[in-house]
Simulated scan of single mutants.
Amino acid sequence: MNLTTMIALLHRDLHVARRELGSFLLRVVLQPLLFTFIFGFVMPRQGLVAQSYRSLLLPGIVALSMTLSGMQAVALPLVIDFGWTKEIEDRLLAPISIRGVALEKIMVGMIQAIVAGLLVLPLAWFIMGRQAELWFAAHPARLIIVAALTSWLFAAFGLFLGTATEPQHIGLIFNVLIGPMIFFGCTYYPWATLATVRWFQVLVLIDPLVYASEGFRAAMTPQLPHMPSWLILSGLIGFCALFTLLGIRQFERRAVD
């Protein structure tokens, strides 16, 4: 793998992303902050949810923003590159392996996902009135590991979606996929409290967002109920490996067609 070529491709993709900063911010910030405003600001002031719910919600909002950003940053450009513009052919002519191009796409998605998390966290905390009790300063290593694995997981997931989906179907795939992933992904409630509905607690384990939400909850609000750390890391690492392998395999298949 030619490291210089990969860095050049990465620089080019990040330069394109910087030119589209406005659409990036809307894509990343709008939906999580709308949920934050309603569930973390409006409803607590109406007395419909407890004030402590803000601390429980914030880690899920960060996980959601990184999920959406990582997936869309990789999947949407790939659908266009493979479908209409065929721009991917220019990348494949570079002095780098096909697998190297796929890994570079994952790296781009990881960077954008981390940027999304860094943007949404302070904004969401401010909207909630800065009353969410965060303890992430006590577990900085855990927070960094969860953020890195989450960004990798959903960038790899985006690679798989972007190479396995036809351009005319990508909108449908996202509409069908994102809704259930969000509502079953423990974004707005902790996994531990689902013990009262045991079958549902087990079922949601197939949703990769569960491990991201619970990972940030364990890192940022460890005083609240959350999934055991061993299960969080197992889920994140397992899905990272799965989607990376599937994504690279599908990318190579599309590249040689």
Rank of each mutant, 00 (worst) to 15 (best):
A195H: 10
R198T: 05
I206E: 02
G100R: 04
L134Q: 11
M107R: 12
R198C: 00
T193D: 13
E133G: 03
V210P: 10
R142M: 13
A212M: 07
S151M: 06
L118R: 02
V202L: 14
M181H: 01
T163W: 04
G215H: 06
G162C: 10
A132F: 00
L149C: 13
I111Y: 09
A195E: 14
L118Y: 02
E166S: 15
F154I: 04
A195D: 11
D207T: 06
M220A: 15
T163E: 08
P167F: 13
A155M: 02
G129I: 04
E214M: 05
T196S: 13
G185S: 09
P190N: 14
R198Q: 14
R142I: 00
I182T: 14
P140A: 07
G109N: 08
L123T: 01
V115A: 14
I182E: 04
P190E: 09
W199C: 01
H139W: 12
W199E: 13
T187Y: 03
V101D: 06
I182V: 15
G171P: 08
P208G: 11
A116Q: 03
Q112M: 14
I114C: 06
A156E: 05
G185K: 04
V120C: 05
F184P: 00
I111R: 10
R198V: 00
G215K: 06
V197E: 05
L123S: 07
F136R: 05
M107K: 07
M220S: 13
N175H: 09
P167M: 12
L121F: 12
I111A: 15
I206W: 09
L203A: 15
Q168S: 15
V176W: 11
L161M: 14
L203K: 00
C186K: 00
T193I: 13
Y189T: 08
L119Q: 01
I144P: 00
L205R: 10
V176I: 14
V197C: 00
M110N: 06
I106F: 03
L134H: 07
T196L: 06
E166D: 15
W199T: 10
S151H: 03
A124E: 06
I173F: 14
P190G: 11
I127L: 15
I106Y: 06
T165A: 12
L153S: 10
T196E: 11
A195T: 07
W135D: 12
L194E: 11
L177W: 13
F157G: 03
P180H: 07
A113D: 04
F216I: 02
H139Q: 13
L194N: 10
V146N: 10
C186W: 00
A147S: 15
W199F: 12
L194W: 04
V197K: 04
M181Q: 13
F154H: 11
T163K: 06
A218Q: 09
M107G: 03
A132Y: 01
L172S: 15
M220E: 08
A148K: 00
